[in-house]
C-alpha cells in the first residue's frame, strides 16, 4: 500500500505524458467508461478518480471478486492487476460473492452503494445498471456455451473444485536450501531436471501458442467465409424481392387498367358522343351495342 502511494507521483507524471489513445486504453483496462472524443483533462480526471477508488478499496474485497469469477491470479496480485481482471468480467450471478466483494464490485461499476445496504437491493441495482446489449450478449453466450458444453462434455459439467491461487514467483526453495536438505547430487539432479522441465514446458507453451494462433486464423477465415455466404444469400433474397415488387407493380398496373376498362360498360358509352365513340379503344361489339341501344 505504501509502495503504491510512494509510486503515485511518478505514475501521475507518466500518466499526464501519455497520448490520448493510450490514456483511453489504460482507463478502459481499469474499467472506466471513456470515449476517445473526450477532452484530455476529462480523461485524466476520470482515470485519477479510478486510481483514488482503487486506493480506497480493500485488496481482499477485490480478491474475493476475482476468486468468485474464478480468474487465475496470484494471491499477491496488485490492486491494478485485480482491477483489470474485474473490468473484463461480465458475470452477473452474484451467488458465492462475499458482501465486501459485492460492494467493491458495485463501486467499480459506478453503482452507488452504502455499506449497510441490503444485499438484494444492491444486486438488483447492479443488474439494472447492466446495459441491455450486455444482457442480450450474455444470453446469447449462455446458449452458445450450453451447446458447446453439450458437444464437448456430453452433458452439463459439474461446478469445479475449490479455487486455488496461482503459485507465487520465487516461492520455490533456493539451490542452497536444497543442497542443505537433499545433498549435492540429489539437489543438482533435481535442479537440472527442473530446468529441463522448464525448457520443455516453455517449448510446449510455444507450440500451444502457435497452435492457438493457427486455430484462431482458421476460425477467422471460416468466419469470413460464413459472412460472405450470408451476404450472398441476403443479396439473392433482395434480388428475388426486387423481382417480386416489379411483378407486383406490373400486376397492379394491369389490374388498374382492367378496372378502368370494365368501368366503361356499353351503358356508359351512351353518354359519349357518337363521333367520339370511334376514337375509343373499347371493343367494337360494345360500340355496336351502344349504337343499337342494347344492354349488357
Amino acid at each position: 500500500m505504501s509502495g503504491s502511494v510512494r509510486d503515485r507521483p511518478e505514475k501521475t507524471r507518466a500518466l499526464s505524458e501519455l497520448p490520448a489513445d493510450e490514456l483511453v486504453r489504460y482507463g478502459q483496462e481499469l474499467g472506466v467508461q471513456l470515449d476517445a472524443r473526450m477532452a484530455r483533462g476529462e480523461l485524466l480526471r476520470r482515470i485519477r478518480e479510478r486510481q483514488e477508488l482503487l486506493l480506497d478499496l480493500e485488496r481482499d474485497a477485490m480478491l474475493d471478486i476475482v476468486v468468485w469469477a474464478r480468474y487465475p491470479v496470484r494471491a499477491s496480485a496488485s490492486k491494478e492487476e485485480l482491477a483489470r481482471l474485474i473490468a473484463s468480467l461480465g458475470k452477473m450471478d452474484f451467488r458465492n460473492l462475499s458482501d465486501r466483494g459485492l460492494i467493491a464490485l458495485a463501486r467499480l461499476r459506478d453503482v452507488p452503494c452504502q455499506k449497510d445496504e441490503p444485499r438484494e437491493s444492491l444486486e438488483d441495482r447492479l443488474r439494472a445498471a447492466e446495459p441491455i446489449w450486455n444482457r442480450l450478449r450474455r444470453g446469447r453466450r449462455r446458449i452458445v456455451a450450453s451447446l458447446i458444453t453439450r458437444v464437448v462434455n456430453g452433458q452439463e459439467a459439474a461446478e469445479s473444485e475449490v479455487y486455488r491461487f496461482l503459485p507465487e514467483e520465487g516461492a520455490a526453495p533456493s539451490l542452497k536450501e536444497r543442497i542443505a536438505e537433499d545433498g549435492v547430487v540429489g539437489s543438482l539432479t533435481r535442479k537440472i531436471r527442473s530446468v529441463a522441465d522448464d525448457y520443455v514446458r516453455e517449448k510446449l507453451d510455444e507450440i500451444e501458442v502457435r497452435i492457438d494462433q493457427k486455430l484462431d486464423e482458421i476460425d477467422r477465415r471460416l468466419a469470413e467465409w460464413r459472412d460472405q455466404e450470408v451476404a450472398n444469400r441476403l443479396k439473392l433474397i433482395k434480388i428475388t424481392l426486387v423481382g417480386s415488387v416489379l411483378v407486383a407493380i406490373l400486376s397492379l398496373a394491369y389490374s388498374y387498367v382492367k378496372s378502368q376498362s370494365l368501368d366503361a360498360t356499353p351503358e356508359k358509352l351512351e353518354s359519349i358522343p357518337a363521333d367520339k365513340q370511334s376514337e375509343t379503344w373499347l371493343p367494337t361489339e360494345w360500340l355496336d351495342r351502344a349504337e343499337t341501344g342494347g344492354t349488357c
Binding site: L147, R226, D227, A231
Partner: peptide
C-alpha cells in the same frame, strides 16, 4: 452451428 450462432446481425443490418 456454433459458427452460425456467432453471426453478428449488426454487420448485415443494411441488407436486412
Amino acid at each position: 452451428m456454433v459458427l452460425l450462432l456467432r453471426v453478428r446481425i449488426r454487420r448485415f443490418s443494411c441488407e436486412l
